[in-house]
Design a protein around this nucleic acid. Structure first.
Lengths: 322, 322
DNA sequence: CTGAAAGCGCTAACAC
DNA sequence: GTGTTAGCGCTTTCAG
């Protein structure tokens, strides 16, 4: 590895001069600057960002922690965050917590002292831990609310309202909610919103599950939903909903003739599964952008809370109640 | 931020002792060790990994660069790599190059001096740049071959052989290949393999495109394929194939009655699109694991080349030639 | 077993 | 403008 010392020696200047010639060229006389830069190039010098970070205390890296990197739902967020990070000349570090608070804490232990800020998507960490973390580093939350911490949340309330409104309009009066993981904050929001709306409109909604909020959870959820006698199945998310659709097809149950099915997230595949899924779409790329902006804007202290609007996308999986 | 100095002072020992008590506890007397550890915990001390890395020269971080993080095809690789990295107590840093050599170089500039090793998936960097990079850091390649560098490649030859064999068995004699990006190494491999196999079996194969290897590329590819008079369309990858299926459905062309369609990768969604896609599946999680193992095993110098076996998955999108 | 001191590669006062 | 010097927080000889 060629260091700044090597460059300085070879160029016949002090290290500090070499350093400046590379990072603050305007403060160096043209001839010296040119010589240093030429030598640096010739020697193939690359600044050691680690060393630079020790003194500046900043690495220009941001971390994004997601519960499951294989869930297509997060792709938008990641891409939006990536885009903004790149624009701000930061490097994004991505970590997968597998929805496990232990692994999440692990990752944070490792990355906490390395990155300049952290985006936590659907964090499962206890409130106290989040607060403590936020004391060390700027932190922004996605789909998790905690007083004092800034964040971006999907408008689950409105999403569920739109879903139920749509189903009621189609004549459905008995609805089953296929719930996902009990431990997630957003799961609680979804169910609460749906239950509230059901009460308001006088529709009966049963809460089934929890089921693993993945394709694999589909079979059990579909069977339970069918057995409940509901005419519409509201799945916790698209992954589960698609799994449900597959199971129903396998069992020869026509959708939406016998039951309607809805999802949440509008993931990759929701528009080409069979039948295409009626679901709620959220501007996840925008979420990613906003999260990084808040992190970089230094507003991470101000506890801004942004609620992102959602929109129902009606596709083939919902129809009139039988 | 509480530093090691703070801990040492509070515990009434030298920094070096505090350091050892935390990283080499066995070399410290039990009472001292206990005291230091207790103080560290009480003060909420967290080692600064950056500082640690300056002296050790290692950060315990590995980078994985992929051309497009939103392509579900890479999820397996990422997950496999993550798993191994975690097991080896390393942190994975993920970067998206958008298939742009410039951005890829950018990322490497930023991360090169920070990570202990690099996994490059489908790198678009010139051979010379790759070689130079490999001189600085351990590098392993995925789906790109370069003499002297270790890597893991999908067995494209066998995959294409299986696809064509399957189609020929169904009576297809006129096949169109819907090509993807010209600039990718794997694209070249796929076409070369298909062309060779076509020659061997005396089947006519036209190369159409290139089309953007994404869902969006589907419409143009489908129309061109149909116009070519081929009875089977072999798409460069699943994303494109699914886009093609959607376009065919839109145009009312029955699949596989009028044309058969095949993909490559077996991505999320390939089994629930309509009709389900006949494609080639590769053990991508295994690829991720092997790549990280090679990186960590220090075999990165030995230029090992692992070819991963593939398997044809026949689904509803292929049938007898009309 | 513990402490003092050197130094990782780089940046940033502070002089000249 | 440029060089000298002092660290950043930590690990690691090297003495004691």
């Amino acid at each position: 590895m060629v260091t700044l010392q090597d460059v300085a020696r070879e160029a016949g200047v002090a290290v500090s001069t070499a350093s400046r010639a590379l990072t603050h060229p305007e403060r160096i006389s043209p001839p010296t600057r040119a010589r240093v830069q030429e030598v640096a190039r010739r020697l193939g010098y690359r600044p050691n960002r680690i060393a630079r970070a020790v003194v500046s205390g900043r690495t220009q890296m941001l971390a994004v922690l997601v519960p499951d990197i294989t869930n297509p739902h997060r792709l938008g967020l990641i891409r939006g965050a990536e885009e903004r990070a790149r624009a701000a000349d930061r490097t994004l570090v991505l970590g997968d917590t597998r929805g496990d608070p232990g692994l999440e804490a692990d990752h944070l232990d490792r990355l906490g002292s390395v990155v300049d800020g952290i985006v936590l998507a659907s964090s499962r960490l206890p409130d106290a831990d989040l607060r403590e973390l936020a004391r060390r580093r700027p932190v922004v939350l996605h789909d998790r609310e905690l007083a004092g911490l800034p964040g971006v949340v999907t408008d689950f309330d409105d999403g569920m309202r739109q879903i139920l409104g749509h189903l009621v309009g189609l004549g459905h009066r008995r609805v089953a909610y296929l719930s996902g993981s009990r431990r997630s904050w957003s799961e609680g929001r979804r169910w609460a919103a749906l239950a509230a709306e059901a009460t308001r409109t006088g529709v009966g909604v049963a809460c089934l599950g929890p089921f693993p909020p993945m394709l694999d959870g589909g079979p059990a959820a579909a069977d339970a939903g069918l057995a409940s006698g509901a005419t519409a199945l509201v799945a916790s998310n698209d992954l589960l909903a698609i799994g449900v659709l597959r199971r129903l097809e396998e069992r020869g149950v026509p959708v939406p003739q016998t039951v309607s099915v809805t999802g949440f997230d509008d993931i990759f595949g929701a528009d080409f599964c069979h039948p295409p899924l009626t679901t709620v779409t959220a501007p996840t790329e925008e979420a990613g952008r906003v999260l990084v902006d808040v992190l970089l804007g230094g507003h991470a202290q101000d506890a801004e809370r942004t609620v992102l609007p959602v929109r129902l996308r009606v596709r083939g999986s919902t129809g009139p109640a039988r």
